[in-house]
Design a protein around this nucleic acid. Structure first.
Lengths: 190, 190
DNA sequence: TTCACTTTTTGATATAGGTCAAAAGAAAGC
DNA sequence: GCTTTCTTTTGACCTATATCAAAAAGTGAA
């Protein structure tokens, strides 16, 4: 889904507003395995994924990659606190599948917020949606068995479950890859 | 912290805006143990807690209360998805300590969003802050031991940890109350 | 101050899922 | 097509935390 249609569907922008907003974004193509933000860096951009797939992850004490979130097409992607508070990022942002993305800097985004009240509304709606999803994941992680968590994942990101390495999904779901491998096996044998 | 000061600190409202905004809220006193929203109801109001303490919780399959969040003074409190999408609430909202709260209905809030661009900004900022906190909790829950989770709680809500029943905290942290009791014991013996 | 009720603690036991190690399978470079 | 490297699966064993049950401590109303 492209940015123009996405914006139009969510908030009643005028055609002129939309065109001006789009001019603030930069469209680019990013190849698989590229890192857009590194842990410790201040994240300069917010991304909208037109096509492709990304994830955020961090390194735990043991140095293992822990996937924090997957970002599919038609979603905004960022190391949220780093971008919004302009503080060092706790996360890496990585492209998992060749992607077409739109990026915007913090200054330009703030300019848009200041110019268009509808843009503030968009920001509020996008953030609220994200909040709801994170709360759902929290409930899944906190009170479900490993198997139920995998089923939640299949429901929430059906497309992603089979196109990324198993280890990424396992850490996203808070389990080891051995456990996820066993769950898949037990599911397939039924 | 009262609502007037809270709003003023976050967004540069004019005096007139602030006064009009405050007129849309209703101030009330709520006694301990009162339930403001029930599971299955559509939540009519968003609350701002001037003083006191609240929590949201739900009943799991076994019928046990699971605390989802604590809301201290100076915070907005709501069954978020029910209030914003006007759908049946998954959660109860309960007052744990006698409270003074300001409430506002969805219609009145939307009126404010439509009237004041600054209000959209406020909504965005409050939601973003909440999102950050939920992400923090998610990381704590997902990758820390029971003991570390309790320490995270002490850091995040130092005031709350000793003023609510242990069972509420245990379920909030995704552990049984027996486990939390043992953790407290082992901490105090050091 | 006693009775009823709620909350917390303690003990014994069970288990989901982690850890470690190695084999098997896939993918990527030459 | 081989070789190297990465990913997934399998097996054996272990541990943190759950569960169940009961005792102890705390709280409040009459």
């Amino acid at each position: 889904m492209n940015l123009f249609d996405f914006l139009k569907a969510l908030v009643p922008f005028t055609k002129e507003e939309l065109e001006d907003i789009l001019r603030h974004f930069k469209k680019e193509t990013v190849a698989k395995n590229q890192i857009l933000v590194r842990q410790g860096e201040v994240s300069k951009s917010l991304y909208f994924i037109e096509s492709g797939l990304g994830r955020s992850y961090y390194l735990n004490q043991a140095g293992k990659e822990i996937t924090q979130w997957f970002f599919g097409s038609g979603k905004f992607m960022a190391s949220a606190d780093s971008f919004f508070q302009q503080c060092p990022s706790l996360y890496y942002i990585e492209i998992l599948e060749d992607a077409v993305i739109y990026s915007i800097t913090k200054e330009k985004l703030d300019e848009l917020f200041d110019t268009y009240p509808n843009m503030e509304k968009l920001g509020r709606l996008v953030t609220t949606e994200m909040l709801t999803k994170v709360v759902n994941k929290l409930n899944a992680i906190q009170f479900q068995t490993a198997k139920e968590r995998y089923e939640y994942m299949l429901a929430e990101f059906p497309d992603i479950a089979y196109q990324v390495p198993l280890g990424h999904i396992a850490s996203y779901l808070g389990m080891t890859q051995e456990t996820l491998s066993r769950i898949r096996k037990s599911n397939s044998s039924k």
